[in-house]
Amino acid sequence: MFFGLLFFLGAIALGALLAAQISGSTSAMMRLGYGFGFWVLVLVSSSFLILGGGGFVFAALRVGTSRERRSALAIQAVNLDLISEAIVQPRDYPFLPSDHDLVNSPGIKLSYRLPTHESPGWRLAAAAAFCLLWTGIAAALLVIAINKALDGKIDAVLTSIVVPFWGVAGWSIWFLVRQMTSLTLLGPTIVEIARHRLQPGQACEVYLSQSGHIELRRFALRLVCEEEATYQQGTDIRVERHRVVDIPLREEARVALEPGQPFEFKTNCSIPVTAMHSFQSSHNRVLWSLRVQACPEGGKPFERSFPIIVFPSGPSPELAATNTSVARPRAVVS
């Protein structure tokens, strides 16, 4: 309806405009010549025409086409060789997260080095950029305010702006220093696993190395599984997470990190036999990860997350015995 109306308006406007130009209308409203205004009107009415027409055709195509048929067509398109090569996901396991980052990064102590979920470097860069920008603006305002004061003209409005600006600048400097301190005192965390394609009920060896120059009150490595749901609430997009598995793999009460002497250990990690495998769709996920949690002496606790992928258990024992091959989504449209 909306697109039809848009198309109709665009067609009428463009038609009237062209007709007026061709017929040489004497109306003041229509006397535009072929100047800038004429082409702007042509552009606007043409965009109405194209958007309305496109939307109308798209809506018409959707009428009488079920959600399942559209989904089947989309999956068929994804299965085309060119597209499926571009989409990284374990090919025999639809809707599992990509294991590309995992398999292309060999470890030193064990087979696979886990990529971290978030890079502290980005947070530091963002904090530095914000701090520089804000402090620069605050400094410029301060210089202007001082110059005015020296001239004997105290600007009350400017002064009232400078004070909160410097408040925020002070906070951004403090935050940046804290980020730099935590990044330099607490060095990189390396987590490696011995085995990929872990399934529920299976175990593997985990190696952890934490370097830095700080005293930790508490240090823990945990195996965590979370359900994650993304939904829209009003104009906000919200993400809700619920932890369904939380298994401590190692907990230490006091750890002193010294330069050149990382705190390292190996431990075993077992995926519960009753657990759900990793899953990823547009708005819902099941995420498995190894979480490193540490509480520095006198500092704020931090957590680093290293995602792992848990594959579904194999087919039933009877099927495994007959070595039946398993299927990728086919979505055959006939």
Binding site: S71, A72, E228, T230, H283, N284, P329, V332
Partner: peptide, 10 residues
């Protein structure tokens, strides 16, 4: 979460 779906066979 928002509803996701996929068709395996059609």
């Amino acid at each position: 979460g928002e509803e996701d779906m996929a068709v395996h066979a059609f």
